[in-house]
Design a protein around this nucleic acid. Structure first.
Lengths: 217, 217
DNA sequence: AATCAAGATTTGTGATCACAAAAATTGGTT
DNA sequence: AACCAATTTTTGTGATCACAAATCTTGATT
């Protein structure tokens, strides 16, 4: 089936679909993935799936094993610390850059996102929580108007996202987004130091890696 | 023609070929690139080229225009500053991490690389210079043993590399790798502050963007 | 029952085919 | 000579085909 009008290419929509799956916890590590299987589940031919997989491999969201089989990359304590380190370097910086461009309307948006994130958390809707958390951070980051840094941070999120379910299962869901509220308060007060601190704290709280349990469904 | 033994896949070698072309100045901005043309010049079918292009697009080394045509992304002063900013955040950090793992043998290697880079510069072999400069930096960065940061920096190099010829044409080739020599001296003295400084200076010297001349061969 | 080799199936890879959209070419009109 | 519409060619996209390598299944031997 060929596309007829000015809609997205199959390739692009496949990419977005798969990216969202990875980003919002619908793609767990360890589970074997086949190109034909993915293609069928998305209702397309293997061709665009292959290209999407290459793309996500370049973004370190997927990896090709020596068997040439594709999968979510294995997480190690070392790699997790590397991601955490990179995030701590880039994200507070990006948030600080964004601050001058965040107006009252954006703050309102952030508060709304946060409210919905809380709701998802209460309903044990993990995917909804992941989406909310992502939206909160990237609503801020996009305001920095810095595509170069933004794409680096996107890559980092793609790398740790599949392991967040593990992390939050161990952490429990109590008081997870306190830092979000502190951040929005800091934005209202135009307190850039408090804001940067809140982003760092939020990030560090969410990046406590649970080693061991490498075999998961 | 199918591959028979445990050699690289066509895909992988195509990726490396194209990546090197971009990284070492053999791929200039503005020039229109076609998949079939690339395929023919590399002696493969369009399929692996398409996947390679997707990969390099994900790494921001190539971009797909609205025409769906692929090209080296256009450089703007803004984007150049963003790349420079990101490099200044990540590369000195990576270099500092690497320092403890750089032994005498590595320093010797760096001095050799630098010598060859000088030679290339004298012979007006720009591609050779680019390669030498890359080798110098990444011999250091790889010692940091931090794949996450390394791949972020790789992406940044892919983004500015095609524009280095412009920069160096305007800058002239005088005293460009002084900082390399200062850096190796600092390594010999195990002076981490001087080393980090040399990396930063080197990077800043090489990132003076020349605006205007957007139309080049 | 456990082990392992031989056969069948699935999977990734690369090439090719089909088609629509974009670009290049052509030819006629002013 | 300059412009523009119609035709031809080129190009990207998605599906399919061919094949080898990897995985799974099977059945015989101990």
């Amino acid at each position: 089936m060929h596309q007829t009008s000015n809609t997205l290419t199959v390739n692009e929509s496949t990419y977005r679909d798969l990216k969202e799956k990875i980003l919002f916890g619908d793609m767990l590590p360890g589970r074997p993935v086949t190109l034909r299987g993915l293609a069928e589940s998305l209702g397309v031919s293997p061709t665009p799936v292959r290209e999407t997989v290459r793309r996500l491999t370049a973004e370190r969201a997927l990896s090709l094993q020596d068997n040439r089989r594709v999968s979510i990359p294995e997480m190690t304590a070392k790699r997790f610390q590397e991601i955490r380190h990179a995030r701590l370097i880039l994200e507070p910086e990006l948030a600080t850059l964004a601050m001058i461009n965040i107006d009252k309307k954006t703050i309102k948006t952030l508060i709304d996102i946060d409210k919905n994130t809380d709701l998802a958390l209460l309903k044990n809707d993990f995917s909804g929580y992941m989406r909310g958390n992502y939206d909160f951070h990237f609503t801020i980051y996009r305001r920095a108007n810095n595509d170069v840094l933004l794409s680096l941070v996107e890559s980092l999120w793609l790398q740790f996202a599949p392991y967040m379910r593990q992390v939050y299962n161990h952490l429990g869901t109590t008081a997870l987004d306190d830092q979000h509220r502190i951040a929005t308060k800091a934005l209202e007060n135009r307190d850039s130091i408090a804001f940067k601190n809140a982003i760092m704290e939020d990030l560090q709280q969410g990046m406590t890696f649970i080693g061991a349990s490498n075999t998961l469904l």
